[in-house]
Design a protein around this nucleic acid. Structure first.
Length: 563
RNA sequence: GCUCUCAUAGCUCAGAUGGAUAGAGCAUUGGUUUCCUAAACCAAGGGUCAUAGGUUCGAAUCCUAUUGAGAGCGCCA
């Protein structure tokens, strides 16, 4: 807020002094205790490029004018053109009543009238959520909260892959166990193993007897298997306070004819051709272990879409020779459906292992004549699991998964959120299970809640009556100035985090704020008490502490952390 | 072979838009509590920002090359 205010002042003066230049894109940011002032701007560097004169000259010219504002104590210009702003104390004090008035709504922006669809998790309904899904789950949830906070209308969606090979493997895996329970042998090529498969089989055997051992079982087992896993996923998510607005089923895309609609559009645009191999693909060099080599026997030719015309590296098959559709086609249909619903922005949180899929989906969307700039992908890097220094592989087939719910139960939801929100989405993540357990002893949530507890204690002890006035002769302490400066950048922190889709910035900010408070508290608790008989002093200080409390609570709300 | 992501303290990680002395937590060492209670604070040590060039007033950040790590290069979803 204050930062924006300062920016506006500088903007005004630039327009007055150099009316002819284009409004430059500069920033104002808070400075740590450094002897260089309260805020710093790069404005002189940017403007000097525009004017062709030296930054220090520009800075001095600008400083002379900006200095005249009451809220500016002084401007210092340092070589080669740093523009250092010292603000008047009144302006910092003035933040307190604003924060108090807005309470936890502080930092929220008015609705922008923009609708965002965010799709995340979307784990296949072939097993429970595991640690590999955690990052996408928490990131998506927090991002939704953040986008809402800064004024977007947000819809959260989960895409259910309830069609095709994977769910057939699921059904067969359950069926195998089901048959075994009735003493019938049934063998499968690929299967999922794990307790949950046996449980579903057991339940079906109990409820439905042996009637499926000798008839067409597949559709029924797919249906039940998907349903059971989905129930479980929904329950786990709810347990972590992650709620979705909609659940979109892949098989409905077929049932409702949306896939066919896409095919018709392509057909009418003459973008399809029958072939054994992609025209552009040629003989791509693949590494030996490439799955493309491994599965080359499955390439039998079919109907290709000319995605290479729309930015993809090669054309892609969309319908196999046997007439069945490929996953990509359904995904294009799904995204066309998203576009139809009229969102201004369509966000997809995908695992980095789907990175290769982005280009062809984009191409497919462009081929439909849709504006793919509305489509944004956030690729979440994989989590590398370690235990006692050794790698662990997550595999549903081998049944070696660590359930997400297990983690949350073990260390708590708040700590889990912090764990996954404590790094930027595109950093690789080494997750050591032993260390995680150590971490639970030293739980960062405690740091937050203890900070809040101290704030509450102070407020309760004071005779704060909900009434605040900022006229006062009290001079802020250095620490109090710094705290208020931190308060002043809350809006920018939210804005940057939202723009870059990097909510971890809020966590770091919040942690920094609390740490500064703890430091302040410890320093003055014994001598020169924070609360004293000096009513004016106490009043300002209580106001400051309530402001901090509000910002911490607001940040935690965005992060979905309950303390 | 090609594409994407990444490499910062002993460990786990922050450092958007190039800015002043590169930060935090954990770990290590030492210190601090007559309740606004220490789940905290203070202090110290710890760095060739992977390497080598380049761009410029100025680079952890941008460009090029090299090395190393992860992911992808399926008519699986």
């Amino acid at each position: 807020m204050l930062v924006i205010f300062l920016k506006n002042i500088i903007n005004n003066e630039i327009r007055r002094i150099w009316p002819k230049i284009d409004m430059p894109d500069f920033f104002v940011e808070r400075l740590e205790l450094s002897g260089y002032g309260d805020y710093y701007s790069n404005v002189a560097f940017v403007v000097s490029k525009e004017l062709g004169s030296a930054p220090s000259v520009v800075a001095l010219d600008l400083a002379r004018e900006v200095q005249r504002y009451n809220c500016i104590e002084k401007i210092e210009v340092a070589d080669p053109g740093f523009f250092n702003i010292y603000v008047d104390e009144e302006i910092l004090n003035g933040l307190i009543p604003v924060v108090l008035a807005k309470n936890v709504e502080y930092g929220s922006r008015a609705m922008k009238g923009k609708r965002v669809l965010i799709e995340f998790v979307s784990a296949n309904p072939t097993g429970p959520l595991h640690i590999g899904h955690a990052r996408s789950a928490f990131l998506g949830d927090v991002l939704s909260r953040l986008l809402k906070k800064v004024g977007y209308e947000v819809s959260k969606e989960y895409y259910i892959n309830d069609f095709g090979n994977q769910v057939e493997i699921l059904a067969n895996s359950i069926y195998k166990e089901y048959c075994a329970l009735h003493g019938v042998e049934f063998s499968v090529d690929e299967e999922y193993s794990g307790g949950y498969i046996k449980e579903i089989a057991k339940e079906m055997a109990k409820k439905e007897g042996s009637r499926w051992t000798s008839c067409e079982y597949l559709p029924h087992f797919i249906e039940v298997g998907v349903l059971k896993n989905l129930d479980r996923i929904k329950k786990d998510l709810r347990g972590m306070h992650i709620e979705f607005d909609s659940w979109f089923s892949e098989s409905e895309l077929y049932e409702k004819g949306i896939v066919e609609e896409v095919m018709n559009i392509y057909r009418s645009k003459n973008l399809l051709y029958e072939a054994n191999r992609s025209k552009e693909g040629g003989e791509a060099i693949r590494r030996d272990g490439s799955k493309s080599n491994e599965f080359s026997f499955r390439k039998e030719g079919g109907l290709f879409l000319q995605t290479s015309k729309y930015g993809d590296v090669e054309d892609r098959v969309v319908r196999r020779k046997n007439g069945t559709s490929v996953y990509l086609l359904a995904d294009i249909a799904y995204h066309m459906e998203k576009f139809k619903r009229g969102f201004d922005s369509i966000l997809n949180l995908w695992g980095a292992d789907h990175a290769g899929h982005v280009g062809r989906l984009r191409a497919g969307i462009r081929a439909l004549g849709l504006d793919d700039s509305k489509l944004e992908f956030i690729l979440v890097q994989m989590v590398k699991l370690m235990k006692e220094g050794k790698d662990i592989k997550i595999s549903k087939r081998a049944g070696s998964i660590i359930e997400l719910q297990e983690l949350v139960r073990e260390i708590g939801e708040g700590a889990s959120r912090i764990l996954f929100m404590h790094r930027s989405p595109n950093s690789q993540f080494v997750f050591d299970i032993e260390k995680m357990k150590e971490g639970s002893v030293n739980n960062p949530v405690c740091y937050f809640s203890y900070g809040l507890k101290r704030m509450y204690a102070l407020v309760e002890k004071s005779s704060y009556n909900g009434f605040f006035f900022n006229r006062s002769n009290y001079r802020l302490l250095r620490e109090e100035r710094e705290l208020l400066k931190k308060v002043s950048i809350y809006h920018s922190v939210l804005e940057v985090a939202a723009n870059l889709k990097e909510p971890h910035r809020i966590l770091f900010y919040c942690q920094d704020l609390i740490s500064a408070f703890h430091s302040y508290f410890s320093r003055y608790r014994n001598n020169d008490k924070i609360l004293s008989a000096d009513r004016e002093k106490s009043k300002i200080r209580v106001g400051l502490i309530i402001s901090l409390k509000i910002i911490v609570e607001s940040s935690l709300q965005v992060l979905g952390i309950r303390v």
